[in-house]
Design a protein around this nucleic acid. Structure first.
Lengths: 181, 181
DNA sequence: GTCGTTACTGTACGGACGTACAGGACGGTG
DNA sequence: CACCGTCCTGTACGTCCGTACAGTAACGAC
């Protein structure tokens, strides 16, 4: 965009439209044509800027990825503070949480280095941290319950202010994980 | 099957394969060809028995539907017993819970009387019962947190015995909903 | 034996998807 | 001016999906 664009930041508008549509319907259920018509350009224009489609997801996910690394590296002592960090992360990046939970890459095939594979590994890492090493059945159930509550609560209340969601959700997640406050 | 079938219950095997695949990958991500190859017949055979595709989902969902009606009509006094009933229902029908949460019908279009529309209405009804009338932000967050924890915990632990999941999940859901046991 | 029903198979169609590619409009640079 | 890179359109291709339809083999009924 060095030319006729004062205000017509097509690339950025595509990114924002994709963020919203992905959050509403999910990655697989959102086509390039959907995004294109939301922005007011052609499908080919979207493909021009983001090629292939999963680059859209990758670019949307990038801030969240760097953020979670910072958060994790900052360190936390116990399980409780880990959950706090996790809830904060989920709420802050709620517009892309659905991309993390959804399996972006197909079911089985895993082209090494693809964004889908990295996502799956990341989510499994979070789960492992929640469930602990060699988890018993109850631990598995609790870990998935926490993950599920995070995803749904965060995605379905995008219209609410961040801090409100964060406070309530933190209490709910802590309780579900078995912490008695 | 009045003919060459002692043991070759194709229709039933299609149903079971579909149940498993839908639970693993979801409805939209499972094609008729996937189901067909899992059973060992052609795609057309699946279409012959279940036409159109959503009849597969409808038939899988039928027992859950009649069960939830029975459960709801049996009545319960407070919110706590409602949650108990809901958890029991979710665990018992965990192989099809994903079909309930997933939006089977497309995003916007709603052919009246379609199974997708009924599902959405059903799920909204459950949510409304959880969140209460005119819910405040915190109530919305909690309701979705409970719903999300139910779905994920139930779907990701299909290999565990029903009663184990039910007990742990009930405790987690009650806690997430704000009940102090 | 003929007929009709049931349970499929093989083939093909129409639509939606992501993608590839050629071309055109525009502004910056030489 | 010519030249080039950027941004975007129009068109088209290959693939996969659900679906439609004609044909076929096996059985029971008469």
């Amino acid at each position: 965009m060095t030319t006729l664009d004062p205000g017509y930041d097509t690339r950025g508008r595509i990114l924002e439209a994709a963020r919203q549509l992905f959050a509403e319907r999910g990655y697989a259920a959102t086509s390039l044509a959907d995004i294109a018509s939301a922005v007011g350009v052609t499908k080919t224009a979207v493909a021009y800027h983001f090629h292939p489609k999963d680059r859209l997801a990758a670019e949307l996910l990038a801030p969240a990825a760097s953020d979670i690394v910072t958060l994790i590296e900052s360190g936390f002592d116990d399980e409780r503070s880990f959950l706090e960090v996790l809830v904060t992360f989920a709420v802050r990046h709620r517009t892309v949480i659905r991309l993390i939970m959804e399996d972006i890459g197909g079911a089985d095939d895993a082209p090494p280095g693809s964004p889908g594979e990295a996502l799956r590994a990341f989510r499994d890492c979070i789960y492992a941290r929640l469930a602990g090493p060699d988890p018993d059945p109850a631990g598995r159930v609790r870990a998935w319950a926490v993950l599920g509550s995070l995803q749904y609560a965060v995605v379905k209340t995008i219209d609410l202010p961040e801090e409100t969601v964060r406070e309530t959700l933190l209490a709910a997640a802590l309780a579900a994980a078995g912490f008695t406050s």
